[in-house]
């Protein structure tokens, strides 16, 4: 923060707001851009079901510079005791 800002105070600038809103929005939208995501999800459930009780599978994709992430979260049913 510059001395000017220290003296006169600082509000969140609109460009910053634009940046933050876009990042959040695009993180959600990019999830749906993979054409095979539904098939992948179905196959994964099939495979995991052989070994464990599946509750739900969440798949997230994310692009960050040159790296593409595919994040798979598998929620298992609690073991029956």
């Amino acid at each position: 923060m510059s001395l000017f800002e220290a003296i006169f105070g600082r509000k969140k600038k609109s460009a910053e707001a634009a940046r933050d809103r876009l990042k959040i929005m695009l993180a959600h939208e990019r999830v749906n851009t993979l054409p095979y995501i539904d098939d992948l999800k179905r196959d994964l459930i099939e495979v995991v079901k052989k070994y464990a009780e599946v509750n739900d599978i969440k798949i997230k994709t994310e692009k960050n510079q040159d790296i593409d992430f595919l994040e798979v979260e598998i929620l298992l049913n609690p073991p029956k005791s």
Binding site: K13, S14, A15, E16, R19, L22, K23, K63, N64, D66
Partner: peptide
């Protein structure tokens, strides 16, 4: 600070 900079846009679009 009222318009996104070139770097801001590049960061988002990658």
């Amino acid at each position: 600070g009222e318009m996104m900079s070139v770097d801001d846009v590049l960061n988002i679009l990658a």
